[in-house]
């Protein structure tokens, strides 16, 4: 756990909610590079940008629809007034499930303060339902086997890697993205910081 948590420390970018900037405007794709730290064993690998700037409008985000565990479509638009945390994951992704207890904790701590965490699985709703049965995830788990990866790519995840976590401010601005495992303390701090900013800007 420690190794995984330490290895994938990736920092995306954090914009000020006050700017109310639409991420896809004025930011060339790829200008905001997400870079993963790498062990010595990867030094021989060729360089390739992993991440880029999100290429979505609030409209795209809030009309995005994924299946819940019963197969019913759920739109992200229902959370447009929340500080929305989208965590892309899959049942076949070990690091993804490694960090899910962090989201469980954060959901407990911050859900009443305006944070909404949603897990979107690049998986079948059946697999997600099976996973949910043996765990106690306390936030919504949605899925779309192919669509989740594509949506994640649109949010700057060039290779469709998992886990990928995105924070969307109320109104649809993408204010933070991260590939790899989040750090609980860092991520909670980011959420709290943006909750304050969002509250001030309203």
């Amino acid at each position: 756990m420690l190794l995984l948590a330490s290895a994938a420390l990736t920092v995306g970018y954090l914009t000020s909610p006050q700017s109310r900037r639409v991420p896809s405007f004025g930011v060339p794709a790829g200008s905001v590079a997400q870079v993963l730290s790498s062990p010595a064993s990867m030094q021989a690998a060729a360089q390739m940008p992993v991440g880029g700037a999100p290429d979505v409008t609030p409209g795209v985000i809030y009309t995005a629809t994924f299946k819940d565990m019963t197969g019913r479509p759920q739109s992200l638009g229902q959370w447009q007034n929340k500080l929305l945390v989208i965590n892309f994951w899959a049942t076949w992704c070990a690091p993804c499930k490694e960090e899910m207890p962090i989201f469980v904790k954060l959901h407990q701590k911050l859900a009443t303060q305006g944070v909404q965490i949603v897990g979107i699985a690049a998986d079948t709703s059946l697999n997600v339902a099976k996973f949910a049965k043996v765990t106690s995830i306390n936030y919504p788990l949605l899925s779309d086997e192919a669509g989740a990866i594509e949506f994640s790519k649109r949010l700057g995840n060039r290779f469709g890697l998992l886990p990928h976590t995105v924070v969307v401010a109320p109104g649809g601005e993408v204010i933070y993205t991260k590939l790899g495992l989040i750090s609980e303390a860092e991520f909670e701090s980011i959420l709290r910081q943006n909750l304050l900013k969002v509250a001030k800007s309203l």
Binding site: A5, S6, L9, V11, Y13, L14, V27, P28, A33, P39
Partner: peptide, 21 residues
């Protein structure tokens, strides 16, 4: 957190005039 783990920290190439986390 990075220091404690003793691993190279992540780096961000940020060309926007925004806060870097």
């Amino acid at each position: 957190f990075f220091m404690l783990l003793g691993l190279p920290p992540a780096v961000i190439a940020n060309t926007t005039a925004t806060t870097v986390a």
